[in-house]
């Protein structure tokens, strides 16, 4: 039995199941909201309407992707265990690792579709309002996708070791911590205390540091940005995702499916 075929089969049917469960309806409602905001901003933000539309658009895309990651991710594996659906699958020639990675890939595909639809919508509105599409916007869209994947894998790990409510609460907390590192380093109380600084820096090896893949400030406020940082950001996100998937497979392999 080909493990690649198992992965593709599980991810394909997970994608099918999730799309049929109308998860992508959020794109329609958030897209409608984006159009409304753009219309309102056109009246109130003279001269920078296109930047407002892009800012709101990227923000809504992040909200939508992280929302799917947390709320769909928290139940992706637990419902399988609680409803005993995975017994039917694991009693076939499918390893636990294949099953978990297949399910994860399925939801990542949903996130990808979500990002693609949003990107087309955001960029169309931005262009229609006279905005100029520069490469960093494309990079930021990819980073938004990678950020939601990072959050999603954290959610999966938490859901394997705790319950759904705690998973959601802890994931939201980790998401905010991940976005706070850059600000924390600028606080003078932290700067003055080397032990505290060391502790915070050490924690960033475990916690995600989303500031490393956030280029929004460069898009909206600064003209120049360091080119080389892009590859570093991609490498950081991919490595983080890879390690987390490995950890989640190790946990799931040891989990007693009672």
């Amino acid at each position: 039995m080909n493990p690649g075929r198992n992965l593709l089969t599980i991810s394909f049917f997970t994608l099918k199941e999730l799309i049929k469960s109308r998860v992508l309806y959020n794109v329609f409602f958030l897209g409608l909201f984006l159009c409304l905001i753009c219309y309102v901003s056109y009246e109130f933000s003279y001269g920078v309407q296109e930047k407002v539309s892009l800012d709101v658009g990227l923000g809504l895309m992040t909200l939508s992707c992280v929302g799917i990651s947390i709320f769909m991710g928290a139940t992706l594996m637990t419902t399988e265990i609680e409803n005993r659906t995975l017994y039917m699958i694991l009693s076939r020639p499918v390893s636990r690792g294949e099953f978990l990675v297949g399910r994860v890939l399925g939801l990542i595909l949903v996130l990808l579709i979500n990002v693609l639809i949003f990107s087309i919508l955001i960029l169309s509105i931005y262009k229609a309002m006279g905005g100029q599409i520069i490469p960093i916007i494309y990079h930021q869209i990819i980073y938004t996708f990678l950020e939601s994947v990072m959050v999603f894998i954290i959610v999966i790990i938490l859901s394997l070791i705790t319950n759904t409510v705690l998973t959601v609460i802890n994931s939201i907390a980790i998401y905010f911590i991940g976005h706070s590192y850059e600000t924390i380093y600028t606080i003078s109380a932290v700067k003055r205390n080397p032990d505290l600084l060391f502790l915070i820096k050490s924690s960033s090896f475990i916690m995600p540091d989303f500031s490393k893949i956030n280029y929004k400030p460069y898009i909206f406020y600064e003209k120049f940005y360091p080119q080389l940082n892009f590859s570093y950001s991609y490498a950081y996100a991919m490595l983080y995702i890879g390690v987390l998937i490995l950890v989640s497979v190790l946990i799931f392999n040891q989990k007693s499916l009672e």
Partner: peptide, 12 residues
Amino acid sequence: FLPERPYFYPSL
């Protein structure tokens, strides 16, 4: 294998 009270993917 058929588990007791099976519950499958409702959207499929």
